[in-house]
Design a protein around this nucleic acid. Structure first.
Lengths: 382, 382
DNA sequence: CTGAAAGCGCTTACAG
DNA sequence: CTGAAAGCGCTTACAG
């Protein structure tokens, strides 16, 4: 009811901002033409386009996501589903995804779901049906969860799986994916140890529930066989991808009559456990024991000595995932299905990060002596 | 044009799902009444409400965010702005925020912004005007960035600052905040070292650009003064909150004629650096040197010995932030301003995590000897 | 190359 | 306690 204060031309309600009509009025065209410019549709005269763009800039106009979403087929929202929030892996993926989304005018909605929540399907359903995201990015272990995949399939939401695992019957074989080559990376890491002169190389496996475990072990075996170096049964230990199981593995390995000169732990948390245990036992790393990890977690570069490890292309995988999602949007009802050509399943390059925890094995005498010392200190776990 | 196949009652287009009209029809009420039930408005007959809820359940109906957002004042979207994606701090905040959002029927949109991007304001503007989030959560250092704060203030978007720093003129003194008591936490940590018998306690400061630095240092000073223990000037080193500056600090401290028996590094990354350096110099931790950190980063529990540190209530702060945002929504135009009472600035309890890197100082003789040994090995940095 | 009309699925006043 | 109408700000067919 109060008279509005003098405002710049075209200014509207101070709070809700200019609309497409304001732009149309200023540019002296219809809202349909503004819409065409907004969506980069072809068939707009270059002068008209310029006029509209000028009006948009002058009014600082931004189309409202909710209006576009309600009227059209796109929501400009991409969902990221993950389980362990503290996981470095997710942080890297999220970083890549937000960057690529911003570039494309999309926004990233994140949801942390417990892998075995009773209402998991319900939670996924709710997100999809209320938000209508244009696509979903799934990280392990959710990208291997049949319940989650089924919910998403039913909703016809385009998905991209990042580092998915075993493709069982219910899994996302029919869904596009982005991954790195775990087998090859593990092979390279093993080759590094072999090339340093190690022959007594131990391997600490991950849990069988995670697909990366088998792949990394496979790479280890392949490299050893290629170099005709025997794999000692006692040198292959089952771990759980956590620090504690790395500690346990180290105790078992270092109390052997003939302990290994190098340990390849198939993720950094376990490698950190091996390192901690070795140091606690008085072994010098890498002088008396070489250790390699996998993941390039932040901690791997913060310990002493810094861990040799494998860097996963986390952000890159996410960027590619977002691109696949945006490309697959609209038009094709069965989304990804038709893209099933060359790049339905993408594999991105990784990087072997050689740092300070790996070196040539000490000469026989010194090494034996050191390990004997360690063995003495090893007490049976209670 | 083709005859639709037989479908269950009320079923609509397979892909877009049921609408509020479908629910209204099934419950034999108007859509307005369904809307009332959806929004938990009072003044709906209990029987009517029950009927509507039954219809909602039967149809598995979910209101569409975009339609609610376009028609109403809420978007059911909360934004989280952060800078460093790998930071453990952000991961904890995000975890708490997604959980609380889910409980409240909201969704979390994340945006990673570079603190000194040239188009920072533009980026914030774009997010706010296209998404119209009901609120924004800001983490350091963005919550202290005048440009970001100005953009948000202009857009009239309710904000909550998590762990904001110095309240300068342009800062968010007028915005609600959630934090922990850094001063008190640092005081407690110092008290722990003092109670173990340490008197020669060094302190590694953070960069002056970060507000936590001064607060933690203040807590250290307060504890030392309270116990009438002198603060040796050479024991207070300027760090940068990173691993490398921890290493440097350790080298400086351990090459002193009279080195400290304990080091309180004011964040974990620096404490990890001190630990690595000490171990590289052959010092036993905590036997010959006690080390305490701050943050409870994942790495702090993965090293050997595990670091004594302070756990910040990250997820809790985020939960509270989301609650403040939801509570402040609608009605009050100046949002948070009116809540300025008891809980405009909330302080949440932290936890001192005592682990294995702190112990009583070794007896004078042994300790001196150990440090002398270390001193010999210390080489001047080039 | 451009536009007028209808409609997406809700909430907001307003009326009863 | 309940509902009919209008409208949020866009895109979708469709027409010219």
């Amino acid at each position: 009811m109060t008279a509005s204060p003098p405002l710049a031309t075209g200014a509207v309600t101070g709070v809700s901002g200019p609309t497409i009509s304001d732009v149309a009025r200023l540019a002296e065209v219809s809202i349909k033409t503004v819409s065409r410019v907004l969506n980069h549709e072809p068939g707009v005269h270059v002068d008209t386009r310029a006029a509209v763009e000028r009006a948009i800039a002058e009014l600082r106009y931004r189309p409202k996501q909710s209006a576009r979403s309600l009227a059209g087929a796109r929501s400009f929202l991409i969902g990221l589903l993950y389980y362990d929030p503290s996981a470095q892996f997710v942080a890297g993926v999220q970083q890549g995804a937000t960057m690529r989304c911003r570039e494309a005018g999309y926004h990233l909605v994140v949801e942390s779901l417990h892998d075995d929540a009773p209402d998991l399907r319900e939670q996924v359903d709710r997100m999809v049906s209320t938000l209508r995201p244009d696509g979903m990015i799934l990280t392990p272990p959710l990208c291997d969860n049949p319940e989650v995949l089924a919910a998403l399939r039913d909703s016809r939401t385009p998905c991209v799986l990042v580092s998915p695992g075993r493709h069982t019957k219910d899994a996302g074989r029919d869904m596009p994916s982005v991954r790195m080559d775990d087998v090859h990376a593990a092979e390279e890491t093993t080759n590094l140890l072999l090339s340093l002169g190690h022959e007594r190389i131990a391997f600490v496996k991950g849990p069988s529930s995670q697909s990366a475990s088998a792949l990394r072990h496979q790479g280890f075996v392949r490299a050893m066989k290629a170099h005709r170096v025997g794999i000692v049964e006692d040198y292959v230990i089952a771990g759980r991808f956590d620090f504690e199981s790395g500690v346990e593995a180290a105790h078992r390995l270092l109390s052997l009559a003939r302990p290994p000169t190098a340990v390849f732990a198939s993720n950094d948390d376990m490698a950190l456990g091996v390192l901690a245990a070795a140091q606690a036992l008085g072994l010098a790393v890498p002088g008396e024991l070489s250790i390699a990890g996998f993941d390039d977690s932040p901690a791997s570069g913060l310990v002493w000595p810094a861990l040799t490890t494998v860097r996963q292309p986390k952000a890159e995988m996410a960027r590619v995932a977002v691109e696949m999602l945006i490309a697959a949007r609209a038009g094709d009802f069965d989304g990804p299905a038709q893209a099933r050509g060359t790049d339905f399943h993408r594999v991105l390059p990784h990087e072997l990060v050689v740092r300070d925890s790996t070196a040539a094995p000490a000469t026989q005498a010194i090494a034996e002596q050191a390990r004997a010392r360690a063995r003495e200190r090893t007490r049976p776990k209670r």
